[in-house]
């Protein structure tokens, strides 16, 4: 029974990692938002499973935040934004899908190599979860680096943040997980729901960050 519990936790964390890879190669904004929704749902399941396994009721709250805020509200507002800005077009990917995927695989290997020896003495459950979480964080970073579009950069950041929540939930009995996930949600809410996108919209008529690059020209 114990083993099965751990296996389910690992399956969920692994699924989250796979979804991160899907984010990496998806080149349409609406598809990206759908996959992010899936990402958030898996995160929520994973955290709920941790709550059950660790018998930590406060983690159910984190799971609920993930389900309601990240899987419902955020995708909804992002869809609203891309509809308003009329940018359902293809996202350009810097460097090409093949190379990005290879770098992604390399990053996963790297995080396993770094984390597994360091956590040798830890609980078998949190041990592999933290390695998966680091991989998700690094893939999120990779996505932020390879994308030029503000919406996909935000999605990259949010997938990175999901990895952090997974790590925090996996750390046995860590306090403040709820507070941390709330703080992150506020951060994302501030940025996503409006201010930046609409202000950028005011000035540039679209959210492509290469427009911002053009502004930089001629400045020291």
């Amino acid at each position: 029974m114990e083993l099965l519990t751990i296996d389910i936790a690992h399956v969920l964390a692994g699924a989250l990692l796979l979804t991160s890879f899907m984010l990496l190669y998806q080149d349409r904004l609406s598809g990206l938002i759908n996959i992010y929704t899936l990402h958030a749902v898996i995160l929520s399941l994973s955290v709920a499973w941790q709550a059950y396994y660790q018998d930590a009721p406060h983690l159910y709250l984190t799971a609920a935040i993930a389900a309601i805020f990240k899987a419902l509200i955020i995708p909804f507002s992002l869809r609203h934004i891309i509809k308003r800005l009329r940018i359902h077009r293809t996202v350009e990917v810097v460097g090409g899908v093949g190379i990005t995927m290879l770098i992604g695989i390399f990053l996963v290997a790297l995080s396993l190599v770094v984390m597994l020896p360091a956590t040798a003495s830890a609980d078998p459950l949190s041990r592999e979860d933290i390695a998966f979480a680091l991989a998700i964080v690094l893939l999120g970073l990779l996505m932020m680096v390879t994308r030029r579009n503000a919406v996909s950069q935000i999605i990259g950041f949010m997938s990175l943040e999901n990895g952090l929540v997974l790590a925090a939930a996996g750390a046995n009995g860590m306090p403040l997980v709820v507070e941390i996930s709330v703080a992150f949600s506020i951060l994302i809410a501030f940025i996503v729901i409006g201010i930046f996108l609409f202000r950028i919209r005011e000035r540039f008529d679209n959210v492509d960050l290469s427009e911002l690059d053009r502004v930089r020209g001629g400045r020291s």
Binding site: I130, A133, L134, V137, L141, M144, F157, L160, E161, L164, A167, A168, A171, M174, I180
Partner: peptide, 11 residues
């Protein structure tokens, strides 16, 4: 990104 890395270190 900096803040996120710091959180990972904190965990």
């Amino acid at each position: 990104v900096g803040i996120a890395l710091a959180l990972f270190g904190t965990i």
